[in-house]
Design a protein around this nucleic acid. Sequence first.
DNA 1: TTGAAAGCGATACCAT
DNA 2: ATGGTATCGCTTTCAA
Lengths: 333, 333
Amino acid sequence: MASSETGPRRVTIDDVAEAAGVSRQTVSRALNDKGEIGVATKQRVLDAAQALGYRPSRFARGLVRQDTFSVGLVIPDLLNPFFTEVAAAALEAARALGWHVVVYDTGDRVEEERGTLEVVASQVDAVVGYLSLPEDEIVRLTRGLPVVLIDRKHHSERFSSILIDGEAGVHAAIRHLNRAGHRRIGMLDHAERSEPSVRHDWFDGAMTACGLDARAVARADQSVEGGEHGLHELLARHPDLTAVFMFNDIIAIGGLRAARRLGRQVPRDLAVIGFDGLRLGTLVEPPLTTVALDTRALGALAVEEAARLLTGSGPVRTDELTVGAELRLRESA
Amino acid sequence: MASSETGPRRVTIDDVAEAAGVSRQTVSRALNDKGEIGVATKQRVLDAAQALGYRPSRFARGLVRQDTFSVGLVIPDLLNPFFTEVAAAALEAARALGWHVVVYDTGDRVEEERGTLEVVASQVDAVVGYLSLPEDEIVRLTRGLPVVLIDRKHHSERFSSILIDGEAGVHAAIRHLNRAGHRRIGMLDHAERSEPSVRHDWFDGAMTACGLDARAVARADQSVEGGEHGLHELLARHPDLTAVFMFNDIIAIGGLRAARRLGRQVPRDLAVIGFDGLRLGTLVEPPLTTVALDTRALGALAVEEAARLLTGSGPVRTDELTVGAELRLRESA
DNA sequence: TTGAAAGCGATACCAT
DNA sequence: ATGGTATCGCTTTCAA
């Protein structure tokens, strides 16, 4: 027994050729259903391939027929319904283009994002992602690949961005609350970064436009539990609030639950408005009023833009790469 | 202007070598951070690569360093939370193995499943999927690839299966209802295939074991709306039911909504038990009692089994490829 | 530190 | 209908 056992060598097309007593081109023909081959020969080749357990190398094949593309989709958490919807849309758009999608879930960890970007370059032709690393690091890690950033501006030439413009939607939401008589409106912002979010800016602007005071703000983790916690805190500090605008639907759903526990009935005692427009919002009680994004468009645009970047077809107008948001009235406000 | 414009040729390593005035091995060294290269040379190469917009071919690279694996994950609908959870688990397991996952969403359409299987073979080293095509067709389309079927038995040598055993869990569920005084218990089965589901068999067995009549069964589409419809129908035919076991959580959530609309309070007027144990079930009102599957294990096992199949390491015991289910009491029953 | 040459495993083109 | 040969773009020896 050799001590340098090296594992079974890969079965190549040549092995099949030898076993079937033909040349490798003939094997190729048989396997790819090309014509120009005798029926008997073909069968013999197929049998040999089967017997040897032959599987063509996708790399060798890809090398010679340069006609398949894949995009890497990098997201923080597939179980977060927002990203589920974006991912589903990306898959659908990719299917339409005949592209393959390699999905990476970084579990909200920066090191995983870094690790992913490190390996992704050797697997795909372009990257689409909701990324949190500094841009120069992304530039370095993606070694020349086209990159499409979701909900984040870019600077590098190689990059592009799909942006979210929720300003009009948030204004509509606050106006809606104002008209319904709400004056003391708070916001639950996210707690990820140290600075307030862009959504908070929109909220601020909308409140100011209505002549309202926008200072009742607390922060929450991006999870149902985070929203629950956050609303408790917000209401502890501002018990007189009659309405709350939430950073997103996930947090809003946590808020709904917290309100119930606090004995505050929604929307009678407390109006709640979310952001994102997740399907999930229709399943909770009461159904969530929200500033709805077209997550489908978001995912689709991202993949399509990646394809555009790769083929070098000209730049598209920024507004075509921007997804708007509109107020969707349901029952929570 | 030549009328036979052929598009920009791909930038290869040789182009970079020429531009930098070095050999291509030197370029390779520079790009892969190998040592054995002068700092100045390295920088010159990197600059040239940058200037030319060079990106290494993943196929060429993969061909020579045969060290990366990918698995194709084929599911009917990523937006169905059950598959979201399975997919997330699969991604996590794959990450641990250093594998890449190419995801395909067939949108519940058989033709798409067929189309996917047709192209997937040239992209991955193994396939994991919740498939509905006849096995002989899958065998044919996947041309030699190892295949792991989720929630479905296999016959082919090349295949393996991850099975769900919910019998004990369903028995526990029915016993729980029985103990709580329920006697008239119905079931909402799925409507996909013509025959009753395996879960229906479990229900049947459990009811019989309790000495109860298991004939109140209706069918529902696998969606929230389907569950809503289905429960209406079931209660129309059997108005005296006091409890319902649902094919899965999605349908159960529809049932919850239907019950509310019918003015039946859950669990007081109607107890509801789902199947799957989705996180989603904790968000609805009331939180859903369910026969919970370990979807995490399901996805992870599938990917790990695919890896095992590929490396040819011996077969694993069937019970290690089976995911159990247990009754998770929440508030709907 | 750098370069030349030999593959990796398939397909395409051109003979026969 | 079948085979020979070049080729895809890169990394890995092995020399220099």
